[in-house]
Design a protein around this nucleic acid. Structure first.
Lengths: 336, 336
DNA sequence: CAACTTTTGGCAACCGCTTGCCGTAGTTGC
DNA sequence: GCAACTACGGCAAGCGGTTGCCAAAAGTTG
């Protein structure tokens, strides 16, 4: 009682007060089945009275469990990641974990370096839109628990939003509006999604008898959207599918700047349904998805991994449904 | 050499390999002035060869320095915070620290609880737009290092963007356009900024002979903006200043929905210059600021606090200049 | 009721690093 | 040439928990 000199009480304080050994206190707190319920309740009561709180650092040291997960995103200023971040944060908190957020700035080097740096002090990594190579990710996964977002890799848990169905929907929508040609303004070469989206678009286009071309790559930013718009307009296609909404919104502005009209002269489609895509002018047709859920599930399967034995731990690859949000940026193809 | 069984090498491994005591290795690594340069270089070389990396948990335990700071924001999905988050993340990384991000969801309880939870495992807190009472913040600051963003409190370091000058600019801008009355659509009662902004607007209005009324409070969200728009239109004022851009953008939509026009029927001004405020329709006139810098400086002064002796540590209250970004949502006052 | 199993609490050895204190060797002053 | 310092390396005691192992207590069984 006398020695509460501003310091947080430790299990030793609780033990003394409860007239038990520190080890017993530790067990009562973190391994309740190991002590009698009478003892446990006594410990709990004393701990509560003293205002005891575990020192998470101290408990992480011997146990190896830090109760911390890291989430890396490729660009922290892309609104697309908000939902993911929020979902991940929620799920982490619900599981009693702390979330560390990292920005990899579109660079595989920054990504690798930051992950390395955190290596020993987190229970695992959720990596969204990784720019690393498959090999590097596999190496990383050999050393730490890893869950992927917007990327699939055999043997690793992942959460993505369906793009096969999504791209098909986009193409059918455009086809229904009379478009006969589209261009895909590709994202970064290292982004797994870039190829996936292109593949989906190309295949769907083939099936409905539309021509499709891939142009780029472009940085997935609003600024690069201006460039993409010029390239798209120059291509002669009547519909442009941008790698993401940031680019698509940048395109809308550039098209207007050049005195052309969306969708009369060019229809534009994006991906992600980000904040702002509903009030751009025109509002953007885009492929949305349940991104909070994505973040939540990624953290979930990351934390789940540790439970399962190495055997039973066949990584689950989750695919969530996407949905096409049709707005003003797509319209009838211009007459020939 | 033989015992690199998947485990990360420790200072003991380095010590053995370098034929020195672990304590010397520890000093060579983290207190270079304490050993001879010959020794230090030898240690560094061996550590490098073995691929040694400090275990930050283990070093945090005895030293109390975790090299981690936490940033709390009131709403992680508000784009306003992106810049702050990014700036904070950069500065933290530059200082060799890890950033933990927390969402307080506009709730003082969630805020207090989360801060409490992290208490022992971070070096300090940056709290942006805190919803806690002055008393609670002071209590918190008694136990931990705290730096404030968008809030001032005597004795605590803080970074804010100038609102006195900013609100004056807004009012003068509106006055110049012929407006004679404005309404302020207030933000949450617990937000320090709500009163500050209102005070600034009211005073500036008095000086230019404009009438000013305060309405609300409203939640600082797009959704609440619809409500705010109706209230503003009903007030008879010709100019509306929303608590933030989220609300302002929500207002723009609602005004259009009701068949009125911005700025012909009502001029609208926001705060923050968030992502999207440049492509809403019409584009939003808003008070911007160097928010990345805000995040950066907040982390900076938080980390700086620990250096200074308790005496010299007179908390710096930083005020960064704001700037009015004039766009299409403000225009000439409608003729009587 | 003896023999045996299951609970339950305690002891002590870590986890990996930091740091106060001590002793030795080398340097400086007079 | 000797006392007084200073520089530098080592020893060992933590930091606050966790956990393997042991022994006493309690519960089972025939």
């Amino acid at each position: 009682m006398a020695r509460d000199e501003r310091k947080r009480p430790t299990i030793y304080d609780v033990a003394r007060e409860a007239e038990l050994a520190p080890s017993t206190v530790s067990r009562a707190l973190s391994n309740p089945g190991r002590v009698s319920s009478r003892t446990r309740e006594h410990v709990l009561a004393v701990a509560d009275r003293l205002g005891y709180q575990v020192n998470s650092l101290a408990s992480a040291l011997p146990s190896g469990r830090t109760h911390t997960v890291a989430l890396f995103v490729s660009d922290i200023t892309n609104p697309h990641f908000f939902g993911i971040i929020r979902g991940a944060e929620h799920q982490a908190r619900a599981a009693g974990c702390t979330l560390i957020l990292g920005d990899t700035e579109e660079s595989p080097e920054v990504e690798a370096r930051n992950i390395e740096r955190l290596g020993g002090s987190v229970d695992g990594f959720v990596v969204a839109a990784s720019r690393m190579t498959d090999e590097d990710i596999e190496e990383l996964a050999g050393k730490h628990s890893v869950a992927l977002i917007s990327r699939q890799l055999a043997g690793l848990p992942s959460v993505i939003v369906d793009h096969v169905d999504g791209t098909r929907e986009i193409v059918e929508h455009l086809s229904a509006l009379g478009h006969e040609s589209l261009v895909y303004l590709a994202g970064p070469r290292r982004a797994w999604l870039t190829d996936q989206r292109w593949r989906g678009l190309a295949q769907a286009a083939r099936q409905v008898g539309m021509s499709a071309r891939r142009l780029g790559p472009f940085q997935p930013t609003m600024r690069a959207g201006a460039n993409a718009a010029d390239v798209a307009l120059g291509s002669g296609a009547t519909a442009a599918v941008a790698h993401n909404d940031l680019m698509a919104i940048g395109m809308l502005r550039r098209v207007a700047e050049r005195g052309m009209r969306v969708p009369d002269d060019l229809s534009v489609v994006g991906f992600d349904d980000i904040f702002g895509s509903d009030f751009s002018s025109p509002a953007l047709t885009t492929l949305g998805g349940p991104f909070e859920e994505v973040g939540r599930l990624a953290v979930d399967s990351l934390l789940g991994m540790r439970e399962k034995s190495r055997e039973a731990r066949r990584a689950e690859q989750i695919v969530l449904p996407s949905h096409l949000v049709i707005r003003g940026s797509t319209g009838k193809a211009p007459a020939r």
